[in-house]
Nucleic acid binder design. Structure first.
Length: 285
DNA sequence: CGGATTTGACCCGCGC
DNA sequence: GCGCGGGTCAAATCCG
């Protein structure tokens, strides 16, 4: 099965590899991975092997990236005043002066909590209700597919998103979110379908810290899979696969999801998905 | 014309 | 110290 072998690395491998390796990436971000099918036959991804408790912090590069938050955090803190990290950084630059040389000393990059999920879709950039601006694209080592970098267009929002295809299974798109939105969705496209909902669900799970490894029920011996699967999505209807507490939650998404595809159903979504996605303080209506 | 995308260059962390 | 690769910047270009 394709999902797991993305990148095809066996543990342990270097941080660099870990970061490039899709499964490793998913592992890094806390196993909060969902697998969504956009209408094709749903397929459960086998469990991702957890990284062995890397003693020497071999995950430094990846996980660690989060560990390098020290001064980066300060920079992020600056975002609180409403400016995106990039803008803050840019503003602090002697902009015109450093044009060619670009010798400006950059602070360590802060890593915000990340959340990724895999989607079986032909669409690279999945609609998730937010507006994104692409700010970069890089070729990925050991993968014929480039990785795209997106940033939320809301200038108060620092959320970033990476989109790449699994090198082993081109039909699988790996979407990685970094940070949390501090605002409402800009749009909620009708009929955006599974991809959208997948994103919303992913975010919701993240927002609630419902990482899948925190949900024993999803680790039932029957599935042995921290991922959830959405078998048939062609009608924008999410079908929870199992029945337990968490799935009841997913089930509620399902209900709302089905209403999304019908015009004028946004309020229902706001009360449901967005209720989870956007901190109450951020909601204005 | 303004916003979004493309793309080459640069920065930085990490492994060797 | 050097090279590699991921991530970001920003000028150029595209597009509605």
């Amino acid at each position: 099965m394709a999902g797991v072998e993305c990148g095809g690395g066996d543990w342990p491998f270097s941080a660099e590899e870990a970061y490039a390796d899709s499964s490793a990436l998913l592992a890094e971000i806390g196993w909060a991975a969902g697998f969504v099918d956009d209408g094709c036959a749903g397929e459960l991804l086998p469990p991702l092997d957890p990284p062995p408790a890397t003693p020497t912090g071999s995950m430094e590069g990846a996980g660690a990236s989060s560990s390098s938050t020290d001064d980066g955090a300060t920079r992020e803190a600056a975002d609180a005043d409403g400016r995106p990290a990039a803008a803050t950084e840019a503003a602090s630059k002697p902009a015109p002066a450093l044009a060619p040389g670009k010798t400006m000393k950059k602070q360590k990059r802060a890593r915000q909590p990340r959340f990724a999920f895999m989607t079986k879709t032909e669409i690279d950039h999945l609609e998730d209700g937010y507006r994104w601006r692409k700010y970069g694209q890089k070729a990925v080592k050991n993968s014929p597919f480039p990785r795209s970098y997106y940033r939320c267009t809301n200038n108060k929002c620092t959320v970033k998103k990476r989109v790449e295809r699994c090198s082993d299974d081109p039909s699988v798109v790996i979407t990685t979110y970094e940070g949390q939105h501090c605002h409402h969705t800009v749009t909620f496209p009708r009929g955006a379908g599974a991809a959208t909902l997948a994103s919303q669900m992913a975010f919701s799970a993240h927002h609630h810290h419902l990482m899948y490894n925190d949900l024993p029920a999803l680790h039932s011996p029957t599935t042995q899979n921290p991922l959830f699967s959405v078998p048939a999505m062609s009608s924008s209807l999410l079908q929870p696969l199992h029945c337990n507490r968490q799935e009841l939650q997913l089930a509620s998404y399902t209900t709302q999801a089905s209403s999304i595809s019908s015009p004028g159903s946004v309020p229902a979504v706001d009360k449901g998905l967005l209720d989870d996605m956007v901190p109450p303080a951020m909601r204005h209506g």
